[in-house]
């Protein structure tokens, strides 16, 4: 209950700040993207229609009253309800974030576990150098290079978008899945890889720590095979910090997605948010800020739930 209240307060704070910021920004909304000046009469009409000349507190109160009832207003630049814009973009964002998280965890845990088991070996050192290097590459640059190589030069994967606009609807169910996967591969890899490098380093450390725990030493002293120790004891001990890490990774996924969605023309929230800021689309800016804050709150919740599930002490007491 307290958690829900805190979450609500956070959302309100983010929305309020976004509202204040975008209204304070210079530059008029409704400017045509081609640089033409808008007919002044039309501009005045639009300002009147969206009540932009009312005092800011009044505008804010109106927005809040409507928002509480689920009405986030009408997007200036997309010319449709903000709710519709978000509803169209959100599934794409969630899909990308989930896929990237999967890449992050699968690759990260596999590498980290292997490194922990072979700590000090040549392979460990090479992988350590590799994961550190990956984390040092700007994420959008990684994306640009992947597009150039895999899409533009080798034609293995599509350059961007979420589905094929011509054939997608005509494919069988399996074909549509494959189409989605092909479009998802590069953006998810770009977004997930940087996270995977961090996860690998983290898992390696956590497992090295676990290695020295008493029960692991005991198990080893009792002659339990090394492989079983790794899977049964060490990896399990590493779960708890990892679960926390998942919660922490989610804001990063959303932030990184802003750049990745632009590189891959991915129709998600990040791209909508960037466009909205550049177009001074007040209602849409606030809407996207709300969604990203909600995602962070949910990410924290998921992380805590995972931690509770992974922590034997909590599990027992629950």
């Amino acid at each position: 209950m307290r958690r829900a209240l805190r979450a609500a307060a956070l959302l309100l704070a983010v929305a309020t700040l976004a509202f204040a910021a975008i209204h304070a920004a210079p530059g008029a909304p409704f400017q045509p993207a081609d640089g033409r000046a808008l007919d002044p009469v039309a501009a005045a009409g639009l300002r009147a229609r969206f009540a932009l000349d009312a005092p800011l507190p009044v505008q804010y109160a109106r927005w809040l009253a409507a928002a509480v009832q689920g009405d986030l207003g009408e997007s200036f630049s997309r010319q449709r309800p903000v709710r519709d814009v978000l509803a169209a973009a959100l599934p794409h964002s969630l899909l990308l974030a989930a896929a990237a998280l999967l890449v992050d965890l699968l690759v990260g845990i596999a590498l980290g576990a292997w490194q922990a088991a072979h700590a000090g070996s040549r392979g460990d050192r090479v992988l350590s150098a590799f994961t550190m290097s990956v984390q040092a590459v700007p994420v959008f640059w990684l994306g640009l290079v992947l597009v150039l190589v895999f899409a533009q030069w080798w034609h293995w994967l599509p350059v961007g978008g979420a589905t094929d606009p011509v054939t997608h609807d005509l494919l069988t169910a399996a074909g549509r899945w494959l189409d989605r996967l092909r479009h998802l591969a590069l953006p998810a890899l770009t977004l997930g890889l940087a996270g995977a490098a961090g996860t690998a380093r983290f898992v390696r450390g956590a497992m090295r720590d676990a290695w020295h725990e008493d029960h692991v030493r005991t198990a080893r002293a009792m002659g339990v095979p090394e492989r079983t120790i790794l899977l049964r004891h060490v990896l399990r001990d590493a779960w708890l910090p990892l679960a926390t890490l998942v919660g922490l990774a989610i804001p990063g996924l959303i932030g990184g997605a802003v750049l990745v969605e632009t590189v891959f023309s991915w129709p998600g929230i990040g791209r909508v948010a960037t466009d909205a800021i550049l177009a001074r689309d007040h209602p849409l800016v606030v809407g996207t800020a709300l969604v990203s804050a909600a995602a962070v709150v949910l990410g924290g919740l998921v992380g805590d739930l995972l931690a509770a599930w992974a922590d034997p002490r909590v599990r027992r007491s629950a």
């Binding site: 956070l10 704070a13 983010v14 700040l17 976004a18 910021a21 975008i22 304070a24 920004a25 210079p26 530059g27 804001p251 959303i254 932030g255 997605a257 802003v258 750049l259 990040g270 948010a273 960037t274 800021i277 550049l278 001074r280 800016v285 996207t288 800020a289 990203s292 804050a293 962070v296 709150v297």
Partner: peptide, 19 residues
């Protein structure tokens, strides 16, 4: 609150605000 908004967007928004 600060951590709840992607930092890239935060920077973009503030640059917009300051013109």
């Amino acid at each position: 609150t600060g951590l709840a908004v992607p930092r890239v967007l935060l920077v973009l928004a503030v640059v917009a605000v300051t013109g």
